[in-house]
């Protein structure tokens, strides 16, 4: 199930682009971009008095995305997600055709629609998968004592043919299978890892500045982002979480920066800036376990090395499906033989 649902997820962005062909152009491609404060005002006007939760940025076009919510204290109130042209403030048409199907597949792959218990269950399945792969490597040796590498005995029994295929396909893909399997297990621990990060490393930073009420931001967002970037000149802005959102406190802009190299772009640093006074409050680098989680995501989904790598990822995924099915076939046929010749 994980291999099958993982297959379309490898090409998530390609599928999105194919289902949502767009000839959208920025209104003023060569013009000065609007300030974040101006864009936030535009977004809040469109959202009819709602409060902002998150602001993020498209990487391939001059577009910002603003998530708002009517009342942060009312659970279940509707989120509103709008995209805006960075050069004009105009609304950008949503590109969400097929999004529900991909979200369905992603959730099936991630937690079986069961939330944390589903994630932990799949993590345990991943652990058993890794154990099965390691035991397969150990068992490879006795089967290959008298055979050369790559041997497939096609002219004897069907079972021998599939045993040889299972051994060959399995042993040449061990590195990829183990990396995807282990990073998959780490990904299932996302919630506990984020909670541990909040409870340990971010606790002192948040606790000292946490207030009861969600404040209405008054400090300039542009100035706050400038201050945050000034504390870490080797990092760039990734997204902003506003007061009252799940990634911030009740009274701060949480400004998330990420590195600007292929490796460090996956590692984020949250910077807290007071949403009333605009003062810098503090920042925390990610602990090792959060870094492991961040680096596990690209290594699991294979979306970090271009289209060729994605195609390779898909082929290796298909090979893994063949290894799994042939493994089940060998196990079942062995049980059948034992029943006949105990």
């Amino acid at each position: 199930m994980l291999c099958l649902t993982g297959l379309p997820l490898i090409f998530h962005s390609e599928i999105d682009n194919a289902l949502n062909p767009t000839d959208w152009q920025a209104a003023n491609p060569d013009g000065e971009p609007l300030s974040l404060d101006e864009l936030l005002d535009v977004a809040l006007m469109k959202a009819d008095g709602a409060i902002p939760l998150f602001m993020s940025f498209d990487t391939d076009r001059p577009v910002i995305n603003v998530t708002t919510k009517a009342d942060p204290n009312v659970s279940g109130s509707q989120f509103l997600f709008n995209s805006f042209d960075l050069t004009s403030g105009d609304l950008v048409p949503p590109a969400d055709k097929g999004g529900k199907i991909m979200d369905f597949i992603l959730q099936l792959h991630t937690d079986l629609f069961l939330g944390l218990p589903g994630m932990l269950f799949l993590g345990f399945m991943g652990f058993l998968f890794v154990v099965a792969v390691v035991s397969g490597v150990v068992l490879y040796a006795p089967f290959m004592r008298k055979l050369d590498f790559g041997t497939v005995r096609t002219k004897q029994s069907t079972r021998l043919k599939w045993l040889d295929y299972h051994n060959l396909l399995g042993v040449v893909t061990v590195a990829w299978v183990l990396v995807v399997g282990i990073t998959g297990i780490i990904n299932t621990l996302e919630d506990p890892i984020v909670e541990t990060w909040k409870a340990n490393d971010l606790k002192d930073l948040i606790a000292a500045h946490q207030t009861g009420e969600v404040v209405t931001p008054q400090a300039s967002l542009d100035a706050a982002v400038e201050k945050a970037v000034a504390t870490s000149p080797d990092k760039v802005l990734q997204f902003v979480a506003f007061p009252g959102s799940s990634y911030s406190t009740q009274s701060h802009y949480a400004i998330f920066l990420h590195g600007n190299t292929p490796l460090t772009e996956h590692l984020i640093t949250p910077v807290l800036v007071d949403a009333i006074s605009g003062e810098f409050v503090g920042l925390r680098e990610m602990p090792w376990y959060s870094k492991a989680l961040s680096l596990s995501r690209p290594l699991h989904f294979g979306d970090y090395g271009g289209l060729f790598l994605k195609i390779l990822w898909a082929i290796l995924d298909l090979i893994t499906i063949i290894v799994l099915i042939s493994g089940v076939y060998l196990w079942v046929s062995r049980r059948g033989r034992k029943a006949v010749f105990p």
Partner: peptide, 30 residues
């Protein structure tokens, strides 16, 4: 797998080739 994560651009081709060796081994075997 690790090279593609650490570097980008033309290095992606090298990493893809390195990972492809497992497929080449299957093709050679068959």
């Amino acid at each position: 797998l690790i090279l593609a994560l650490v570097e980008t651009g033309w290095v992606d081709m090298i990493s893809t080739l390195a990972i492809s060796t497992s497929l080449l081994a299957i093709i050679w075997g068959r």
